[in-house]
Design a protein around this nucleic acid. Sequence first.
DNA 1: ACCACTACCTGAAGGC
DNA 2: TGCCTTCAGGTAGTGG
Length: 271
Amino acid sequence: MRGLQAKLEGRRIVRAEIRCAGLRWPFPAGLAERLSGAEILGFRRRAKYILMRLSGGDSVLIHLGMSGRMLIEPAGRNDSGPLHEHVMLQTDAAADGGWRVGFVDPRRFGSIDLVRTDAEDTHRLLAALGPEPLGDDFSVATLSAALAGKRTPIKAALLDQKNVAGLGNIYVCEVLFRARISPLRLAHTIPGARAARLVPEIKATLAEAIAAGGSSLRDYVQTDGELGYFQHAWKVYGREGEACPLCVACPGIQRIVQSGRSTFYCAKVQR
DNA sequence: ACCACTACCTGAAGGC
DNA sequence: TGCCTTCAGGTAGTGG
């Protein structure tokens, strides 16, 4: 997001190449034509979506799925880019020579759609999303209300984007560990003292992740091989069998499967 | 209504 | 060495 804003805001798209019919869903009709010639006015994030606002009243709704990334390089290359670069935009030369923006997504879980800027939040993918965890709308009171009466495990409830938007599997594991709450505990037992522990940990974990430049897949190596990703700070995720950082004589970090997803936790610390 | 489970996709990693 | 299987992730849709 920060790189996108710094390099692309105020620039005009002079070329758009669409190299496949779609990813998670088909691309909207006329995507290349509606991108070409538009000025990039700004960016906004909502949950795991990026919204790129264009002149002309369109916003581009982008989801990076799990393996997607936006590759920004100085313009000049005329080849088809790296493997799995499905969409490529080029901006005007201006003072810096322009940029080549590639949407690269090997596993094709990402998506790109268009939505009218004045109705962004009514898009079917955004309409039902819960509050932004870093916003004022997300509080002990609102999370408690969302979880009240739910018989599903808290792990699944935090992954449900209707309750809180933007948490993925890794962050939910980390957040529950930091709040010392068992992932198996039913959601309706969280409101109250446990929610009071959980909410600050959700905010702190996401704030740290954003400051560190985001997360990365355990099995997906960035092409630049750059280190310094948030994964180095994971306390439980991917650490099955390792010692729990908070207790000495416990059996260590366990891996279980909930809702078809891996959960990592310490059964002694998390209750 | 609520909740659990699966399909979608590709590449990495592990087993034989 | 190389083929085959398994697994990871987010979310819409299905089935219970």
